[in-house]
């Protein structure tokens, strides 16, 4: 067994874990600041300078709240629901290439935990399992609002997974690979996939919003009809896990959108600077994170701009508009790859 490899990967996993949690924590702060900005308010400004300690205060509050498990609930599933949701949210980051590899005195340190040759499909599988967290949690609460929220979440996820898969198929046809690092490296010189797959990108983006249960697709937790949706009965840190996992999902989907359609850690012109390897690696990570933060802000911008869909509108958009569009996109891409290229 190669123990240095295991050690490398362990270090990388811990770093990615901490970064995901940190970004998610500050995304909650960012969300409140962006909302405040869009609504002409100030937002949180009491804890620390500019309210920067607000996520910590929120976390402490979550931990100190009373933990209530309803009597009529299925206790085992009630506890395991939020755990599954959080776990799957964190698992997706394993195949994302976070940057070029470092070189410490001849020892290559790759910034990707697992270089799977079916990388995209792995993400897809993990995302489709994430729905179980919501379903199990919502069912185990033994509450009609939670059950309705869980049913909405699962049917929404199934519907939008289809067109998401179709948009990915077009991307795979175009890139000839399922490996995320290959896809990112094919966009090295500014030929970002978004220019060749604009329709596919739009479909993927809409489906990413739906899969993250973000507004305008946040029907599973729409507070005006369902109180809190699938997490109505949850309290203390179990509620915290559900809310927090949503921000981690948002971070990871921003990373995936950036990697698939916007060149990942590449930026046109940077390779011509001829930086030393370690500095180039740092720059590449910075480029990727700049793109990710842009998309996180985009997610927030949309949430505070667009109103929530009605449920039948959501289903019609998924089944009658996005799926035919994505099939047409696959056909066009296939024809392009066969006859033109």
């Amino acid at each position: 067994m190669d123990y240095t490899l295991l050690l490398d990967k362990a270090i990388l996993v811990v770093i990615i874990f901490l970064v995901s949690l940190g970004i998610a924590a500050y995304a909650t702060y960012g969300e409140r600041k962006v909302a405040a900005f869009l609504q002409d308010r100030i937002g949180p400004d009491r804890a620390g300078p500019f309210g920067l300690l607000q996520p910590i205060a929120d976390g402490v509050k979550m931990f100190l709240k009373e933990e209530i498990i309803p009597n009529a609930s299925d206790k085992f599933l009630f506890i395991i629901g939020p755990c599954i949701f959080m776990m799957t949210a964190l698992m997706t980051s394993a195949v994302i290439p976070w940057g070029k590899s470092f070189n410490f005195g001849g020892h290559e340190f790759s910034l990707q935990v697992a270089d799977l040759n079916v990388g995209i499909l792995y993400i897809f599988a993990v995302v489709s399992i994430g729905g179980y967290g919501i379903m199990i949690g919502g069912w185990a609460s033994n509450n009609k609002f939670a059950l309705l929220g869980a049913l909405r979440a699962s049917s929404q996820m199934i519907s939008y997974e289809l067109s998401m898969g179709m948009s990915i198929i077009a991307l795979l046809l175009f890139n000839n690979s399922l490996n995320l690092r290959d896809i990112v490296d094919a966009q090295q010189h500014g030929q970002w996939n978004v220019f060749y797959q604009p329709l596919g990108f739009l479909i993927f983006l809409i489906c990413a919003f739906a899969e993250c249960n973000r507004a305008p697709f946040d029907l599973p937790e729409s507070e005006s009809e369902l109180i809190g949706g699938y997490h109505t009965e949850f309290s203390s840190m179990k509620l915290g896990l559900f809310l927090f996992a949503e921000y981690i999902n948002m971070f990871i989907s921003s990373a995936i959108i950036a990697s698939l359609y916007f060149g990942g850690y590449h930026f046109p012109g940077i390779d011509s600077l001829d930086l030393p390897q370690n500095i180039a690696a740092i720059v590449s990570v910075a480029v990727l994170f700049a793109k990710i933060i842009f998309f996180i802000l985009f997610f927030m911008w949309v949430r505070w701009t667009l109103p929530r869909f009605r449920y039948d509108q959501l289903m019609r958009l998924g089944w009658m508009i996005l799926i035919p569009l994505s099939i047409i996109n696959v056909l066009i891409t296939g024809a392009w790859m066969t006859f033109v290229k």
Partner: peptide, 18 residues
């Protein structure tokens, strides 16, 4: 393995659970 997970665990069993 991945397709097995996507199709059976990710899609069909969601309908069962539903």
């Amino acid at each position: 393995a991945i397709v097995h997970l996507i199709v059976y665990a990710g899609a069909i069993m969601v309908l069962f659970l539903f």
